[in-house]
Every structure is written in C-alpha cells, then in structure tokens.
Design a protein around this nucleic acid. Sequence first.
DNA 1: TTGTATGCGTTATCAG
DNA 2: CTGATAACGCATACAA
Lengths: 351, 351
Amino acid sequence: MASKKPTIATVAAQAGVAVSTVSRYLNGHYVSGPVRARLSEIIAELGYSRSWTARNLSLGRRGSIGVVVDSSQDPWFVQLLTGIEEELSTRDTSLMLASTELRNTYDPALVFEWIRDRRVDGLIVAKAQRRERSLFKSAAEVGLPAVAVVPDENVPHAQVLRSNNLLAGATVANHLADLGHREIAFAGGPRHSIDSQHRERGLREALEKRGIRISNEHVYSCDSWDVEAGSAFAEQFLEQPIEVTALVMANDALALGFMRVALRRGVRMPDDLSLVGFDGLPQGALIYPALTTVFQPMREMGRVACRRLFEVMEEPGRLEKIEFLMELVVRETTAPPRTLKGPERRLRPVT
Amino acid sequence: MASKKPTIATVAAQAGVAVSTVSRYLNGHYVSGPVRARLSEIIAELGYSRSWTARNLSLGRRGSIGVVVDSSQDPWFVQLLTGIEEELSTRDTSLMLASTELRNTYDPALVFEWIRDRRVDGLIVAKAQRRERSLFKSAAEVGLPAVAVVPDENVPHAQVLRSNNLLAGATVANHLADLGHREIAFAGGPRHSIDSQHRERGLREALEKRGIRISNEHVYSCDSWDVEAGSAFAEQFLEQPIEVTALVMANDALALGFMRVALRRGVRMPDDLSLVGFDGLPQGALIYPALTTVFQPMREMGRVACRRLFEVMEEPGRLEKIEFLMELVVRETTAPPRTLKGPERRLRPVT
DNA sequence: TTGTATGCGTTATCAG
DNA sequence: CTGATAACGCATACAA
C-alpha cells in the first residue's frame, strides 16, 4: 500500500536533482543523458505520474473543452462526439457536455457560465443556429476559441466546419435522374435554414441541367429537423394521391419520420415512391427498406473540429472555414420509377 | 477590455479583507453581515469568478469523472449519458469519455491510465462484462470510487445499478399470454449473459404459471447484443416455417436487427409473428411497426449513477446495489395471434 | 546543462 | 469572526 502519491518533488529528491530538472525532463526539454536515464528509471520505479490539475493551474489552462449541442441524443451528434472523443483521448483533456435543450426548453445558461467563469479552454458548438449568435459573441469577447460544426447560420466569430450541401443536392439529382425519375418533390427543413436551401438549390440546379424541373407545388418545408416533423409532413403529403415518383427530404431524421407513416399507410418504397435523405445516419441502414442518403463524415468532422480547436487554443490564428464533401449512399429506398400514369397507382391506407 | 482576470486576491484587496475571508464567503462559511454584503457587491462589480483549476488543486481533486462504455454510439448508452450530463451540469465537474471499442478492438488502456494517473475522481462503467473485472479491481486498489451500471457480471468492487430482469421477463410473459399466445420462442443474447438468462427465466416461469411452456427447440441465443446479430439470427430463424406465434428477443437491438430481415422477407409483424424486445430504445418507436418492448429507465439510471458516485466520492461508504424496475411498453409488434394451423401461414420471401 | 525562486488561485489551519 | 500563512504540484524565467 503506497504511503502517498509521489510528486515531482519525491522524484527530484530520489534522483538528487532539482524539481525543475525533473519538470524539464517531463516536458522533453534539455537534460543530460545520464540524468535522463536515472530519472526515467526512478519514475518507473516510483510509479510516478504528474498531477494534471497542478499542471493545468501552472499553465493557466482548464484542461477541458466544452461541447455544445441541442440534444446529445441526436444520432448525428453522437457520431460527431465519437470523433471528438477519439481526438481527445490523446490529449489529456476532458470535455464538458451542454445540451441546450436538456429540459425540453432552450436554455444556454450553462454555456454562458462556462464562458464567464473560463471553465473551458475552448468550445465546439454543433449545428449552431441564429440563437447561438450571442454565445459565439461572448466567447469571442473573452478570447475563448470556438469552432462551429455545420452551423446553419453565418458565424462571424468562430472557426467553421461545413459540408458542401450544394454538391450533395446535385448528387441526389443525378442519382434520381439516372434512375429515370422526372417528377420529383423536395421537402425541406425550416424555411430559414441555409442548409436546407442549399440542398434544395443543389438539387434543382443539377436537375435543370438534365431538363427536369421541380414544380413549386412539389416543394414543401417542415417546421423542424426531427423525426416527428417528418411524420407530420407525411400525414399531410399522403393525404392526396402521390404526384411524383421520388421525394427528397432535407435530412435523414425527416425521412425516417416520413417512412414510418408512409409504411403504415401502405405506401411502399421504392415501389410507390423513391425516397432520399441527407446525413447518412447509421439508423437509416438498419431499417427496411434501408434509406438512400448522402453521407456526411460526422466522425471525421468531430476529429477535425477538435484538432482545429487545439490549434487555435495554442496560437490564436485566423478564422478558417473547412469544407467537407458528402457522399451518396445508395441503399434501398431508391429505384427506377414504376411506369407512371397507370390506373393502378397504389395508396392503400391501413385501416 | 478587462486588464486581467480578477482573482480572490483582487477581491480581498478591494474589500480590504484577507483572502481567507473571501474564501470563506465563497464557501458559505462564517462571515459577518456587513462584510458579506460588501463582498457580494464587489464580486458582482468585478465580475469575479473563482478558478476551478486552483480550487481543484487545493481540494486535491480532479474535477472530472470518467465514463466508460464499449461504444458511445450505443443508443442505450446515449440515454444513460444524458442522465449523467443532467446531474453533472449542477456539479462543476466535467467528464471524460472512454469507448473501449473505439477502434474496433477492445482496448481499455486509456481507462487504466486514468486510474494510474488519478486523472478522474470516479468512474461510471456502463454494461460491464467479465473483461472489465480487472478494471474495477485496480480502481478499488487505488481507492477510486466506481459505479457499474447494469453490469452483466458480478462486480465485487463497485456500486451497482441493476434492472430487475426477472420481473421484466414476467411482464412480457403476461402480455403475450393475455393476447392469447401459447407458442412462444425466445432468442437470448450471448449464452453466458446473466441479463439474458434472467430475462429468459422471468419469461419462462411466468409463462409456466399460466400453463404455457417454451419448448427447448424454441430457445435460441445470439453471439452478441447488437443489431447485426439480430439480423443474422433472423436469416437462420426464417429459413424454415415459423412454428411460434410470438418471439421474444433479449434486447431491442437484436429485435431491430431481426425486424429488418423479417420485413425484407415479407414476414409481417404482428400479423405473422408478434415480437418483443427489451430496453425501450427510442428507435423502436420510430419505425413501422413500432417495437413492443420493456422500458429501462436509462436516463434516470444515469442520474442516479452520478449521484451515487458523488456520494461515495464525498465519503467512501459501503457498496450498494440499487435496483430499477422495467416497464412494458406496448407498441405495434404485438397482437393476438392469427388463427394458427391455417393452411395460409404466410412466409413469402422477397425475390 | 542545472538549480533557485517565484507564480498559478484556492482552501485549510491555526492563531488572534 | 478574521487574518496570516502554509500547502496543493508543477512550470518557467533567471541565475549559476
């Protein structure tokens, strides 16, 4: 039973050198060969390891970063988190989580506390919206580095990681056009969402290049980005005969919500309707039929976000924008359209 | 632009008292009324807030706890994490995440480092298995408090949170019996899993009380707990005509995996087969048909795990076992069995 | 290359 | 009730 945890002083005494020498050794600064050897030996023997708290205090840092998101339950976020975790595991840094909607109502108070109290060395904010503006602002005011991952908004005060939604939309367009679809609908997220707009625009423009137009009456929008909104949309959309052969929804969550209702009402995908989402959530692959989607490298984004944050923490540097490409993942909800105009267009509601 | 961040000394000077007095004020110890008032005023005016690093150093703690799990992607874990987060947000404590299977292979090295280096004040280990034994052991050796959340194993050195799987199994039994099922199958998790065994036993015993026996050839087991294993099982199980009217799977992930394959092969639930899982993952409610399950209060367990950990951190206390009840959630995959023995038992594979 | 001295911001101890 | 002062464990100018 070790009497007490050895400190740098214990090691120094044992080795007959000054603590500063040990400190230098620990940090890989100059120490003579013999001393280095002796130290390494003693440290091993003592089972010494330095105190991160003391180190942090001395270095004037907190040793932890803050990660902010609407809800840590979000499957999208979970992927991002894994990336962050991966990067963090090599960095002697812990993380604090803040779900701004932890209790069903938006409450960023905790994050503001972090900023005010300098509780964290940096901030990663996922999917920031307009309401997060003031948060970035106060972070910037106290010189706290921040990176925004796929913010659906202009973020003037932070490093920014984005996906190329325009290209993503185009990818979908080509996929559907290749399959032979010419009647296509788009259901966006909230109207003001830039991401949604980009995905739509990418889709439309690429479609137009191939001579396909999305008529305005086939463009819809949902009030939020979540599964429920997708279901609500489906209830409406499926109320009347389907006039298109493919439906593109602005993200996977919406699409998943749509699918549940559609399946329950007897709409078969891709037979009666091809469906595409965006994001590439693992969930989409676990259901039947598996959802065709455009994959966003969330995990890699998590790693990069973290790395970039550390870069800026070490030396303030310019604000950067980093862009990621999304990649089409064809699964089971897309197929060539069935001969249209037949009298037997199916839509049999479940009793 | 604030010249520098005010420290406790700044406040003390400004108020004309000693730092120790300010410290006492901060910690709610004895200070006279007038001083208290003056201090509160000055602190507000200065925008002072104390340094958590310094505080931690002085108190000899790390200010962060470690949370260990196979994979932080696990939807079950995500629920638990939310509970932990909730509790943590009131506690000036951050968390470190360790996924022991972050890189596809089991590697608990990081956690052992935490323990050796005393990087954390406590440990929450989710779903510990036999392989985590040594981890709890070394934590105990250095006096690091640990709590195990639904370990599938005996854990001698930690606080333990469990669910009553026996009762959960019985709940399912009664539900199915009430619906009129008499031919029931059970597909467990890994053979050595205690949880799986308990769920099975609870099911069997309650069923037997109602005069229903599960024949041994209708008891299966999967190699792991995940979706893929469920799918693999389905491929086998559905190879031959279904001989039961209901199937109970040992958790939701397995059931979800089963469903995907079953649906693709044209097996309809609950028409052709009733299906039940355990855990109550949100995912189960988002698909069609929604999965009937037995809900485990993961989020509350997260909160309790965290609270209990803090209790033990503050004063070592005895090892405790806390038990939670699971609750039947009837959704769409269970219904009365269709008249059996008809010639028209359906099993139409998709081409 | 190494040692000395000081700072990091708090808390706790122990006189007053 | 309040004020010095010593930890807490490490890093880093600066001197040697």
